[in-house]
Design a protein around this nucleic acid. Structure first.
Lengths: 153, 153
DNA sequence: ATTTTGGTTCTCAAACTTGCGAACCAAAAG
DNA sequence: CTTTTGGTTCGCAAGTTTGAGAACCAAAAT
């Protein structure tokens, strides 16, 4: 399998984006590859070869991505290979999970305000305001997702 | 300056949260400290001492946080020390910047679809759909922030 | 039963991150 | 001018991440 220059560039860009969200480099590039590859299902060896990485790196990254629920594989009877593919339908729940993490900070900030001295009312209110905003976002974002789903139909 | 157990725990939790968003450990804890400290403006040495970190770690983290626009300092005439404080008013623009990064991925995914073979129409559409959603979010999120601002008044 | 295939695991080295201590420096105080 | 203060920078060491290479393993093919 050969990639055009443009495909390679896209893989890198997607890879870098993923890295910024905390993904390991090789895993990010695998995601990129599966986005741009003409065939959306690639074997272990195809991935390894086209990205020029070792078997161990390939194996580890693929397993990581499966644990993160970003990847899947299917098999075809009479063919021992696994065909890895992105779980594109999962991004909704990934977004929701991301949104949930907002709550953690909001809750913590509420505790902060409760614990703070009463002698800094303005400061306390600033923190409270941030906590409130985060809570608001946490309530509204799922609605936004829902609204979008509906506008699709 | 002494901290209660609860304050220390809150600092750790905020620190860990910040770490998860890519912040260096010491920098994350400084943010936590400034959230919970009775005085919201602390000197270099107070920070260093209460967190039990070295001068270099303190200096580097404070400078990083200033570059990231998370921190500020003020001075008082007749006092050489800098008093560091969180720029709590800046979180709005930080949120907006965060939202902007969504666009990058959306744009990239659009390019991916444009570059993809036409022989995988379903797959292409899945990617297109994700790109569309990200664009939608990018349009709607600032509105949400605005709506919240107004509901405050 | 032996070999091949598809992938996993182990060991290790290189690169990067993190943060300490000490040396350093400029401005203010004495 | 000398010392002190408030902070910066340098050099280094320990810890972590990343990924290569080789040995390994189970299932399937021969």
């Amino acid at each position: 399998m050969k990639l055009t220059e443009k495909q390679q560039e896209l893989i890198e860009r997607i890879g870098v984006f993923q890295e910024k969200t905390g993904m390991q480099p090789v895993a990010g590039r695998i995601i990129g590859l599966l986005y741009v590859s003409d065939r959306p299902e690639l074997t272990f060896d195809e991935i390894r070869e086209v990205l020029g990485i070792s078997k161990s790196a390939t194996s580890n990254a693929l397993n990581l991505l499966q644990h993160l629920n970003r990847l899947d594989y299917i098999t075809y009877s009479g063919d021992r290979k696994r065909y890895f593919r992105l779980k594109l339908d999962r991004w909704r729940s990934l977004v929701l999970k991301e949104i949930d993490s907002i709550t953690d900070l909001s809750v913590t900030l509420r505790e902060v305000v409760a614990e703070r001295t009463g002698e800094t009312p303005e400061y306390n209110q600033d923190i409270q305001e941030l906590a409130d905003f985060l809570k608001y976002m946490h309530q509204e974002l799922p609605k936004l997702l829902q609204k979008w789903e509906e506008s699709r139909k």
